[in-house]
Structure formats: structure tokens, C-alpha cells
Design a protein around this nucleic acid. Structure first.
Lengths: 361, 361
DNA sequence: GAATCACTCCAAAGCGCTTTGGATATTTGA
DNA sequence: TCAAATATCCAAAGCGCTTTGGAGTGATTC
């Protein structure tokens, strides 16, 4: 049954390593019980240090790793975090923000030995999807993306008892819950005020979809600034759409063709701002002189806002950083489930770039 | 032990649903064996149709879902696909292409009942990471992203025996393996030729990092076209970097300031092309008239290349589509492991937009 | 009327791990 | 010197599921 020559075993297993080895094989190879090997690997104290090093070396040599599913079954934990991305069926769009956020979070998970699971969920099926995730037990907690106003997912998840952290917040939800968010209202109020102080009065807002909470708050900030300075709020200068380049272009083109064209634009995304810039150029106007643009900037790695001198004057907040922070909040929430919800409000920096200037008189 | 009133049980379980219920409970509730319930749920024939509908209804009502880990342990399959994204440590950049690809793949997985796992891997640790994934058995197969020239991951994965599909190919790897790729060489040859036919002779290439296989092939295509038309290949007109906006801007700005400035640019990404456009404007030049741009376009949802009339003349190939196709290839590879590797070469469309025109004479 | 068959259903083993509750040496204390 | 404490190790149960190998009905066949 068990050949005595370690070497024989060794080479035998070595040859077999493509068919992942298990604890039983490893313990037979070591002439130890599975219990002891398991304890040695997991750092329990009741195992001789010599034995432990022997076990660790063998595990290393034979390329052993515990099977995730089995470990999960036995411990009741999945060692995985889920990211649930709502997908509108009409347009299966993936906000580029998402990639950077995930990259940040992924780094944190890797440090903690957690896996990351992605689930795309059509928005009609959300309730089912979350129940599903909970019941199937594939993850220990989830990050909620793209919260809308009064997002029912929050009460659902609290009811279900699945730890979660929201990237963003949800206006009108009164339950306590964990979130990390940028101060969107404050940022847009500041940005709009900055334009007003430059003398602009006709300031357009090219916002994201306003059932999304972040966009709703941004509009509030924009409106606050206008109100505080006695500038009238003109619905004709406000748009709310998916934040594409073409959207920025079209909206700006249309507005700039009016007799009472706006002299400044506040954009919710650098991509939209790029669209606005295109319209500005096409209209034969000059940025910062004829038309000013200020935009939110998520500091995406592929859309850096210039180098030394920023292209756009911007409200900057790194979404990559938000990702790592959200991940760490969730991990600590999972390890200390009794604790109260954590919240974190990030401030956006106002970066002065080359897209703003005093209003033409 | 078992109260007779179905109602009692029902409400009892209903109250408990936040603590996911299991097969044993469900079968006790139904007064059936676990075997029968399992078979009923999984569509095996040896179960009465009445029983089956009764089981299905109860499962639905009590919100039962089989535990993924347990199911995986029992079946030996993970019902999950892994996506491994190499991350250079210096710059943790996430190519925006990735989001769209994932979205496409995710749709396919959802249809097939598979989960999606993401792993970010620092490129020094790749070998370990893949062995890890195999040994831990968390996924049934993986999608390999961002292949470089002579990518060692391919032979590693074949050796390990983990089904995989590469998004892209790897020059100099001679093993058979499954991949889906765009005809990058052909596309860039066509695009460059298009510019030559418009009379351009000084054509710059703003490529991605050329250790990446796609970028290497694109350069080959570009060079082929120049050679075929007797245009000399000028290293001073060729750049190879991470495809950001700032890269396009800087490179174009520098080149346009020369006495023998290029009259056309071939870009590897629409984002880089946007940077070039910025430099062109800033130099007081007019697109299509003074300087032409042709770019690869991955048809990203947030970076649509205009609407009716494309902004850029482009070589278009939807990465979202590539994602769904890759996913389906992998799924079929997993279900029929004996089959030979599948390969799929997608052609990029040449889209004529408003960024190209005849060379100024 | 016994044997065969199709139809339903079930008990129990097993997937690979952790962990409980000892068992067996080895030291220690008085 | 013997009991008690300590240090190591182990057998076996259990996590929630699938699946093997029957068992128990009636209905059908000869």
C-alpha cells in the first residue's frame, strides 16, 4: 500500500501534479494523519515545529493547495467576495469606472486571500439574483454597484443577512448600511461655484442618468450653487443621460447653436467632457476663452486628465482608491460581523486645468 | 419530529429563509428522500411528474437553491470560469477593453449557469497563480487575457490540464491551443494602405506596447502596407506605449512640431486617437484636411465612435462580441474536453469616418 | 400463479476539507 | 515515585450535495 521510499512517492506525485493532489495523499506521503497535516498547514499550535516544517516543505514541493470548495464546505465560509453589476437590458453598457474600481478592490482581496466573483444582473431580476447569491453561498459578502435613489437592494440585503458595502449611497434609504462615496453634491456645488465666480451665468449640466444616486446628488450640488448666487435654474441647460462621448457632443452642439448658448458646461464624466470639447471645436470656438468645461474625473488609468497641466478643470476622486477602501471595509465587516455599519465620505479635489476661463463679456 | 401541518412547516421555513435552507430540510418538508428531491430538481427521469412539480413548487416557495460549494464538491465541477488579468506592478492599469469583454462573457456565462471569477495577477507571479487556480479547483476553465509574444502561460496551462481560451494569440507559440482574435495584422495593413491610397507617405504609428501580441501584429500589418507600396519605414514615426490619451497627445504633438511632420496617424486605440486629435487642434491644424487619423476601435459602449457619421475612420471589431464568443468557446471546450482546440479569427471592418482625407499636396 | 418488467423511491457512500473529542507519549510537580 | 499536566498526534463526524445500488410496488407476461 505505502511504498517506503520517499523518493518513489515523491516522483510519483510529482508526475501526478497535473491532477491536483489532495490532503489524503499528502498525509499518506508524510505518514501523518489528515488532521495533523491540516493543522500544520493552518498554523494551529498543537503540532511539533519539526513536523510543521516537514509538512510545509512537502506541500510546497508537491504543489499542494487545499480545494476551495471542500474548505468552504467545511468552514462555512466561501473566501470570496461578489461584485454585482446591474445591467440595463436595453444597452448593456459597462461603465469604465468599473474596471478601475475592480482593480483596486482586487488588490485588496489578493492581499487577504479572497477570490472575487462577478455577476452581471439584468435589473428586473435583481431581487432574485441577490437571494440566489445568498442561498447558493458562493460569497461571504458583496459590493453593491451603481445604487439608485431609494435602492431596494439595501433593505433586501439587510433582510437576507449578507454583508455588503455600497459603492455610493442611496437617497431615501433610512436603514443604516455601509457605504463609501464621493461627496458628489459638495463637489458639484464647488465646481459650479467656481464657474460662477469666473463670471459664468449660463452654465449647462451634462449629468449622468438621474435615477442613479450619484447623478441626483450632483444635480443638487449644481442647483445649490446656482441658487446661492442668485442664478436662475434653467431646465433647458440640464441633461441627464448615459455618459458617453456622443452624448456630450450632441448636447453641447445643440446648446451651443442657440442664441442664448451656455458659456460653461459641468460634466459628470471626462468622456462626456471630451464630447463637449469636440462640439466646441467644431463650432469654431476656443476652450477656456469662449466656453469653459469642468468635469468630474474618476482618475481612470487610461483616461488620465493630462500630465503636468490637467486638460480639464476637474473634480477629481480616484475610483481605484475607492475600490481598495470598499474592499477593505467589506473584509473587516465580514471578520467582525457584530460591528456597526461603516461609512466613508471621500472629498473630490478641485483641479484647475486648461478648460476654464473667465466668462466672455 | 415532523409536525404534520404543512402550513406550520411552511411558515417556519419561511421565517428561516435568511439562513439559507438545505436539501435535507427541503426533503423533510416534502416527506421525500434527499435523493428524490435532488433528482427531481436536476431533471432526472426516474421521478413521478406529480412529485417533480410538487418538489419544484416547494423549492420555489421556500427559496431553495443548492449550495454551490457542496454541489461542486459532489460533482467535481466548479460551475465557474476564471478570468485572469495580468497587472504590471508599476502601473496598475486596467484596459477599458476589459470591461466590455467581461460584460460579453458574463452574458454567456449567465445563460449557461456559470459564475465568473476574476483574478488579478502581478506578472512575476503568473506561474504560481495558475498552478494555484488549478490546484484549488475554483474554476473549470479560464480565459487568458493580454497574451504577449511567446507567452509561457499557454504551455503552462496545457501542461496543467486546465481548459482555456486565449483572447488574442501568441506569436512563437507552436502548441495547438484555443483562441479568438481579431485579424490585427490584416486590419492595420488595410488601414495603412487606405492612407497610402489617399496619398499619405509620412504615416505615424502610435501602437500599444509591442511585447503584447496584438501590438506586434499591428506593427507587422503597418510595415507590410508601407513596404508593399514602396514607402520607407521610418522608426522615428513609430511609437509603442500604453494606450492612453496623454500618450497620443504627446507623441502627436512632438511629431507635428517637426519639419517633416507626418500627415497621418495610425492609432491602436480610440483613446489614443482622441489624444492625437487634441494635439492636432492645438497645433492649429484641421483634422482630415491637414492631418488624418485612423484608429482601431473596440466598439466600447462608452466610447462609441460617433453616431451616424463616425468620428474617426476606424478598424472596428466589437470586443463585447469577442467576449461572448470566447465564453461560448470555453464552455463547449469544457463540456467536450476531447475535442481539438477551437480558433476563431474575427475581421475588423474598415469604417470611413471624418478623420481622414487626401494628403495635403 | 410465478416471473418479469417498468416505475418510483430510498439508504448510504463519497467529494476534500475542518474540527471535536479523545488517545498516546513525555514532562512536570510534590 | 506516581499522579497530573503537557505536548503531539489521530479516528471519525460532519459540511450539503450527487450518485450508486438496490428495494418496494403494481402491471404485464407466460
Amino acid at each position: 500500500m505505502s511504498p517506503c521510499l520517499g523518493l518513489t512517492w515523491h516522483s510519483q506525485f510529482k508526475a501526478l501534479w497535473k491532477y491536483a493532489m489532495n490532503l489524503k495523499q499528502l498525509s499518506e506521503y508524510l505518514n501523518l494523519s489528515q488532521t495533523t497535516v491540516s493543522r500544520a498547514l493552518n498554523g494551529y499550535p498543537e503540532v511539533n515545529e519539526n513536523t510543521r516544517t516537514r509538512v510545509l516543505k512537502a506541500a510546497q514541493d508537491l504543489n499542494y493547495r487545499p480545494n476551495t470548495r471542500a474548505k468552504g464546505l467545511a468552514t462555512g465560509r466561501a473566501l470570496a467576495i461578489g461584485h454585482v453589476i446591474p445591467v440595463s437590458n436595453q444597452h448593456e453598457m459597462v461603465n469604465p469606472v468599473f474596471g478601475d474600481f475592480i482593480a483596486g478592490a482586487g488588490a485588496a482581496y489578493a492581499r487577504a486571500g479572497y477570490d472575487m466573483m462577478l455577476t452581471l444582473v439584468p435589473d428586473q431580476e435583481e431581487v432574485r439574483a441577490y437571494q440566489d447569491i445568498k442561498a447558493r453561498g458562493t460569497v461571504d459578502g458583496i459590493i453593491v454597484h451603481g445604487p439608485i435613489i431609494n435602492d431596494e437592494r439595501i433593505s433586501l440585503l439587510s433582510r437576507i443577512g449578507l454583508p455588503f458595502v455600497v459603492h455610493g449611497r442611496s437617497t431615501d434609504v433610512n436603514l443604516p448600511y455601509s457605504w463609501i462615496d464621493v461627496n458628489n453634491r459638495g463637489a458639484f456645488e464647488r465646481g459650479t461655484q467656481f464657474l460662477i465666480e469666473l463670471g459664468h451665468r449660463k452654465i449647462a449640466l451634462l449629468n449622468g442618468l438621474e435615477h442613479m444616486d450619484f447623478a441626483f446628488r450632483r444635480r443638487k450640488g449644481y442647483e445649490n450653487a446656482l441658487r446661492n448666487h442668485g442664478v436662475s435654474i434653467d431646465p433647458r441647460l440640464m441633461r441627464s443621460e448615459e455618459m458617453t462621448e456622443v452624448y456630450g457632443y450632441r448636447a453641447a452642439k445643440e446648446m451651443l447653436s442657440r442664441s442664448d448658448a451656455p458659456t460653461a458646461f459641468v460634466c459628470s464624466s471626462i468622456i462626456t467632457a471630451i464630447g463637449v470639447r469636440r462640439a466646441v471645436h467644431e463650432a469654431g470656438l476656443v476652450l477656456a476663452r469662449d466656453v469653459s468645461i469642468i468635469t468630474h474625473d474618476d482618475a481612470l488609468s487610461y483616461l488620465e486628465n493630462g500630465d503636468d497641466v490637467p486638460i480639464f478643470t476637474a473634480l477629481r476622486s480616484s475610483v481605484w482608491y475607492a475600490g481598495t477602501e470598499a474592499a477593505e471595509m467589506l473584509l473587516s465587516l465580514i471578520s467582525l460581523p457584530s460591528h456597526a455599519p461603516k461609512t466613508r465620505l471621500l472629498e473630490a479635489e478641485l483641479i484647475i486645468g486648461r478648460s476654464t476661463g473667465p466668462a466672455a463679456t
